[in-house]
């Protein structure tokens, strides 16, 4: 179990959204604000962690033939429970997420790779993997959500910070309203993915340059 490597892979080098391009549907649709991005991200984080742990613990008792079906059943059930809990205790968030809240189950199945990692590794490692991948997902969603909310509405943390009112960074009439629309989601997410890819490509170049200098 290599904790550092797992964290680095989940958050950056194998980030589920920015590098593996998984769960894009929800990543594009719900990220209109910090609240929505964070809410969706945390839901996925919790469901992913629980389902990974559970599948890893159940793994030895399940015949290999039904591994994939079991992963889908367990993850989707946990997603369903999370959906109900959000609807009951965070009705505003549930209203914002709308259709994409029940879609969380699908996102979780995708992000966990139908439990492949969980079945092949111990419980602790699987839980950590779920946690890291969930965090990586949340990170991208929060980033995209903050950018779209800030540039699209001129506000920050509406519905979450400053007792629900959020902070108006600049007047809404100067904001690029298009960024809150679906097209803005594509644009911002593309920029974030490009930035991450650029960042991942950069250190290699630097290392190569150092090598040539040494020579």
């Amino acid at each position: 179990m290599n904790v550092g490597k797992q964290i680095e892979e989940g958050l950056l080098t194998k980030n589920p959204v920015a590098v593996q391009l998984l769960g894009l549907c929800t990543a594009l649709a719900v990220t209109t604000s910090l609240l929505n991005g964070l809410g969706m991200g945390l839901c996925v984080l919790v469901v992913l962690t629980l389902s990974n742990g559970l599948l890893s613990a159940l793994g030895p008792y399940l015949p290999e033939r039904i591994h994939m079906v079991s992963a889908v059943v367990v993850t989707a059930s946990l997603g369903g429970v999370a959906d109900l809990i959000v609807q009951a205790f965070f009705p505003d968030l549930a209203g914002n997420l709308g259709l994409f809240l029940p879609l969380m189950a699908v996102t979780c199945v995708l992000l966990s790779g139908a439990g492949v990692y969980a079945y092949e590794n111990g419980v602790a490692s699987a839980v950590l993997e779920g946690l890291c991948r969930g965090l990586g997902y949340t990170l991208v969603l929060v980033l995209v959500g903050v950018i779209r909310e800030l540039l699209g509405k001129g506000s920050f943390g509406e519905g979450l910070l400053n007792s629900g009112r959020g902070f108006q960074v600049f007047p809404a009439q100067f904001a690029a309203g298009g960024l809150v629309h679906p097209v803005g989601g594509f644009l911002v997410l593309a920029c974030v993915i490009a930035a991450v890819q650029g960042f991942l490509a950069r250190p290699k170049k630097a290392a190569r340059r150092k090598e040539t200098v040494r020579r």
């Binding site: 159940l58 008792y61 399940l62 039904i66 079906v69 079991s70 059943v73 367990v74 989707a76 059930s77």
Partner: peptide, 11 residues
């Protein structure tokens, strides 16, 4: 049997 049991628990 195992799958049924799992589904029953999840249900």
């Amino acid at each position: 049997g195992i799958l049924c049991l799992l589904c029953a628990v999840c249900g």
